[in-house]
Simulated scan of single mutants.
Amino acid sequence: MRVILLARRVPGKADAVQLMAPDAQIPWSESASDRIRGILSEATARGAPPRITGVGNAFHTPGAIPGEGETQIFLNTETGDPVSLLVLRRPGQAPRWAVAMGEIVDEAARPPAADTLLWYRLACSLPARLPDSSLEGTDPAQAQTARADYSIIRRGLGACTRTRIPATPDAAQAPSRSM
Results as ranks from 00 to 15, higher is better:
2 R>G: 12
7 A>I: 06
9 R>M: 09
10 V>N: 06
10 V>S: 05
11 P>Y: 09
11 P>N: 11
12 G>A: 09
13 K>C: 08
16 A>G: 05
18 Q>P: 02
19 L>S: 04
21 A>C: 05
23 D>T: 08
25 Q>A: 14
26 I>S: 10
27 P>M: 12
29 S>E: 11
30 E>H: 10
32 A>C: 11
32 A>G: 12
32 A>K: 12
34 D>N: 14
35 R>Q: 12
36 I>P: 08
37 R>S: 15
38 G>I: 06
39 I>G: 10
39 I>V: 15
42 E>Q: 14
43 A>Q: 09
44 T>Q: 11
45 A>T: 08
45 A>M: 10
47 G>K: 09
48 A>W: 00
49 P>G: 06
50 P>E: 01
50 P>I: 02
53 T>P: 03
53 T>M: 06
55 V>I: 09
55 V>A: 05
56 G>Q: 05
57 N>I: 06
57 N>Y: 09
59 F>A: 14
61 T>R: 14
62 P>S: 06
62 P>K: 07
66 P>S: 07
67 G>S: 00
69 G>N: 03
71 T>E: 04
72 Q>H: 13
73 I>N: 08
73 I>H: 08
73 I>V: 15
74 F>I: 13
78 E>M: 01
80 G>V: 08
80 G>N: 09
81 D>A: 09
82 P>W: 04
84 S>R: 14
84 S>I: 03
85 L>Q: 13
85 L>D: 12
86 L>H: 15
87 V>H: 11
90 R>K: 07
90 R>T: 03
93 Q>T: 10
93 Q>V: 04
95 P>E: 06
95 P>C: 04
96 R>C: 07
97 W>H: 03
98 A>H: 02
98 A>S: 15
102 G>I: 04
104 I>R: 11
104 I>E: 10
106 D>C: 02
107 E>V: 02
107 E>A: 08
107 E>T: 00
108 A>E: 15
109 A>M: 10
110 R>N: 12
112 P>D: 09
112 P>Q: 05
112 P>M: 08
112 P>T: 06
114 A>Q: 10
118 L>C: 06
118 L>R: 02
120 Y>E: 13
120 Y>D: 10
121 R>P: 12
121 R>N: 14
123 A>K: 01
125 S>C: 05
127 P>W: 01
128 A>I: 06
130 L>P: 03
130 L>Y: 02
132 D>E: 13
133 S>W: 01
133 S>Q: 03
133 S>N: 02
134 S>T: 03
136 E>T: 13
136 E>P: 01
137 G>M: 04
139 D>M: 07
140 P>Q: 02
140 P>A: 04
140 P>V: 03
143 A>G: 09
143 A>K: 03
145 T>A: 07
146 A>E: 01
147 R>D: 02
148 A>R: 10
148 A>E: 13
149 D>P: 00
149 D>E: 00
151 S>T: 03
152 I>E: 05
153 I>F: 09
153 I>P: 04
155 R>G: 09
155 R>I: 11
155 R>P: 05
156 G>P: 07
157 L>D: 10
158 G>C: 11
159 A>P: 02
160 C>S: 04
164 R>V: 14
164 R>S: 15
168 T>N: 12
170 D>E: 11
172 A>N: 07
172 A>Y: 05
172 A>L: 12
172 A>E: 09
173 Q>H: 12
173 Q>T: 09
174 A>T: 08
174 A>D: 15
175 P>G: 15
176 S>R: 03
176 S>G: 13
177 R>D: 00
178 S>E: 13
179 M>I: 15
179 M>Q: 14
